[in-house]
């Protein structure tokens, strides 16, 4: 028998707020298995399998390039429009499918939640990791896209901008993802809110258009509250000479952190009752 003191635990009426990272680390294998399960299941029954992760951004890129880039002549901060929109879409799809997956994750795993204890945070976080996996797939086509459109890339910037942009997108997904997951358990209305929200957010995020065409004095500040603005802008830095507005980027990063704290906080606050509600 192992030393019992290692496994001392106490079950009390509702714990004080704490993230309990130690426990999350203890359960890292389960984290891995949930992510692995979701990825396997997602592609198992499809004929094209992993190709779906690639096809979506490519098709969207072609559509947006044709209608917005060519027909409407939307500017793109000095980049070729397809490169501009593809780089934006890569992160956008990570964010949007991340929060959509996370938002539904608690409800779709209700059977497990009701029967077994584990840190609940694993569920939304691992469903966001599935979106990160899809992102990794799109990176495979990102390089050919860059070569095809002869995009000029500042390698020195790419080395830090791309990882940072990715990290910011993942962080930006965690907050709203956890918030939606918790809200969806309590209020099933969010089942309908999530797809709509994702759709609306695409149009208020500078993915398919640059921030420079947002009119008005204050509107850009409002748009910058969107945490994905900073992620996408930083990710695109290596393609352009035009420097972004530092204040706007900071607003977006701070907003992302606030959402992260609020989302994790709300999730932790309500998680102990998930088993009763689910």
């Amino acid at each position: 028998m192992a030393d019992s003191s290692d496994y001392y635990f106490e079950v009390k009426p509702k714990n004080a707020f704490s993230l309990n990272f130690k426990e999350l680390i203890e359960y890292r294998e389960l984290f891995y298995f949930f992510t692995w399960r979701d990825i396997k299941v997602k592609y198992r029954q499809t004929v094209l399998g992993f190709l779906w992760a690639i096809l979506q951004p490519i098709l969207l890129m072609l559509i947006f390039t044709f209608f917005l880039g060519r027909a409407l002549q939307v500017p793109s901060d000095g980049m070729t429009y397809p490169v501009f929109v593809f780089s934006g879409l890569m992160l956008w799809l990570l964010f949007s499918s991340g929060i959509a997956n996370a938002g539904n994750s608690m409800v779709s795993n209700a059977q497990i939640i009701k029967k077994i204890y584990f840190p609940r945070l694993i569920i939304p976080l691992s469903s966001i990791l599935v979106a990160v996996f899809d992102f990794a797939m799109t990176v495979i086509v990102f390089i050919p896209v860059l070569l095809f459109f002869r995009a000029s890339v500042t390698i020195a910037e790419a080395i830090w901008c791309w990882p940072l942009g990715l990290a910011l997108s993942i962080l930006a997904s965690f907050g709203p993802g956890c918030l939606l997951a918790a809200l969806n358990v309590k209020y099933r209305d969010f089942r309908y809110v999530i797809p709509f929200l994702v759709q609306v957010l695409l149009f208020v995020t500078p993915v398919i258009y640059p921030m420079s065409i947002v009119p008005g004095k204050w509107l850009p500040y409002l748009v910058a509250i969107n945490p994905m603005y900073a992620a996408i802008t930083i990710f695109r830095l290596p393609f352009t000479e035009i420097a972004p507005d530092f204040t706007l980027v900071m607003i977006s990063i701070v907003s992302g952190l606030v959402l992260l704290v609020a989302g994790l906080g709300y999730f932790r606050k309500t998680e102990s009752y998930f088993a009763d509600l689910a």
Binding site: M1, Y7, V11, Y273
Partner: peptide, 15 residues
């Protein structure tokens, strides 16, 4: 540990 008690507590000394 699936659901918390309203009152009282449980102390465990093992996995």
């Amino acid at each position: 540990k699936i659901t918390p008690p309203t009152q009282g507590r449980v102390i465990g000394r093992g996995r």
